[in-house]
Design a protein around this nucleic acid. Sequence first.
DNA 1: TATTAAAAGATAATTATTATCCTTTAAGTT
DNA 2: AACTTAAAGGATAATAATTATCTTTTAATA
Lengths: 135, 135
Amino acid sequence: MINYTDILRQHNLKATPQRLAITDVLYVQGHITIESLYKVMVKKFNSISLATIYKNINLMLENSFIQEVKIPHAKSVYELTKENHSHFACEKCGEIQDIIIDLDNIINEVARTNTFKINSSDLVLSGLCKNCQQN
Amino acid sequence: MINYTDILRQHNLKATPQRLAITDVLYVQGHITIESLYKVMVKKFNSISLATIYKNINLMLENSFIQEVKIPHAKSVYELTKENHSHFACEKCGEIQDIIIDLDNIINEVARTNTFKINSSDLVLSGLCKNCQQN
DNA sequence: TATTAAAAGATAATTATTATCCTTTAAGTT
DNA sequence: AACTTAAAGGATAATAATTATCTTTTAATA
Ligand SMILES: [Mn+2]
Ligand SMILES: [Mn+2]
Ligand SMILES: [Zn+2]
Ligand SMILES: [Zn+2]
């Protein structure tokens, strides 16, 4: 288990056992829904409250310690903040994968031909993962 | 008001006055949240039920007559199905604009270097619209 | 015009999320 | 190591969002 105590504190978050466990789950799983996170956490803290999950997810979002990823036709997943990246979502099994895609050219081109100022981009590609292509 | 009666029927949807009005609102507004749609519809049908909004939105989604667009840090908006396109979302005023972006090169490149099969892409650029850049 | 399956409206039920309140605790301070 | 305290956790009530149920109405077809 990676030690995230200092990183939590840098984000103005007390390093409680529950938060360290949430962080570890996010680190190990990569992307997870609220519902799944709660189920995993209950195994570690049998009396944890769902409210604790929500409160922490919201705080961590506010402090940019984690990010929400909205997936078409599915529930949002949450992940530790890292370098900008896009996502692939399997329509069959629900797996989410990170993809590094350089969108600079596209964004620059869009910025050049439009009036708005672009601060960020969110790209999700949907389809079938390797496993689900076979079965 | 455009006549969407036949188009609704082609999607196996009875052309009720409520549905024609929803369609007209979507046509005129472009992108709209459930909440806003309900407020607009109540002006036209003062006794319309919120359940009617939800049932119709869900049916129209199932029949691909409309699409849901998930926006980061904001509520989903709904729009009439049209040719593939991306979106710009203003972080300040919430305005949503269509953008035509050719993602074929990127998608082909991603498909070439990865194992998954891509069926669709969803791209949302966020930032400030022209108006909100000034104020 | 009569028939009927589907849709609308009213509202109950369920699910998702947030708020409240009391207890516990992390993180400093002595 | 004990003391202090604001913050966090747990229990649960409250609210918001969405879906289900049931009765009445109506679009579509004959
Ligand atoms: Mn990711
Ligand atoms: Mn659009
Ligand atoms: Zn899969
Ligand atoms: Zn704006």
